[in-house]
Nucleic acid binder design. Structure first.
Lengths: 148, 148
DNA sequence: CAGTATCCTCCTCGATACTG
DNA sequence: CAGTATCGAGGAGGATACTG
């Protein structure tokens, strides 16, 4: 990791939080992570980037919910996308799905242990978003007001 | 935030990290955040979700870099996408762009204060990704191996 | 070197309709 | 209730060529 001499680098602070081999795997010596599955960060962000996954996990962090209740509480999500999102989260081991063979059928979704462990980091990012949203919007407004 | 009685809820732990009004803004009473700009988390994730932004910010956390050096170190990014990504980050006030009118021209990109403040939360998520990548891949393999 | 411009192709995602 | 199936529009993003 070539460091510019005489320049205060944030990578040192990051290194305190992040083990070396992870940095290697993350931004690597060459950064050849065209295949997302090879890069853990890409892999996670591919999941969280699609808006719904993040909101669904946060909703489920409140407690188990059934399909339509979840659909209502998330809001604005189509039936198809909620199904796709839940399947994807289930496949990744973040969400558990339990079917009660009643009539009409009931399906309950809840976070797994792994899913719970993700909520902390998510909250961290969420806090940043909340705290700095105005700053970002301000920067945007200034940028857009620029001549040219 | 209706809580299921008699159920251990993670929202309490999240609440320790996240101020109440943010939770309201985030997953809200109705969750009507169809417009991403209304929801700070959506707004942030829209930026980070696109893989390149996250990697670019991490790369720049090591120190300022010029366009082509950045392109090489990120790896796999097209010229167009790097330009688009950098413009977007600059617009949001996360990245600063300085032009040196030499021949040939030099352009240096660096993180702003705001950009630096994002690296901590990003590292948190990165750590989670690194620590649990195998668990996720394992869960995926099990899910895919299921009959049906 | 550091872009811009154009084209073109997947691939996501919403809408709609149907089912156990 | 909790899905699945199918279609179609739109946008993200790569490839390529050109420029101050």
């Amino acid at each position: 990791m070539n460091q510019q001499p005489g320049r205060t680098s944030l990578i040192d602070r990051v290194a305190e939080l992040v083990p070396d081999d992870m940095v290697q795997k993350l931004i690597g010596p060459r950064g050849d992570f065209t295949a997302a599955s090879q890069c853990p960060v890409r892999d996670v962000l591919d999941r969280l980037g699609d808006a719904w996954s993040f909101l669904v996990v946060l909703r489920l962090s409140e407690g188990p919910q059934r399909f339509n209740a979840l659909k209502r509480s998330v809001g604005g999500v189509s039936q198809r996308m909620l199904t796709v999102t839940l399947r994807s989260l289930e496949r990744d081991g973040l969400v558990e799905r339990r079917v009660f063979p009643t009539t009409p059928p009931q399906v309950e979704y809840s976070l797994s242990e792994l899913g719970h462990s993700l909520v902390g980091p998510m909250a961290e990012l969420t806090r940043w978003a909340s705290a700095n949203h105005d700053a970002v919007r301000g920067a945007r407004a200034r940028y857009d007001a620029l001549p040219g």
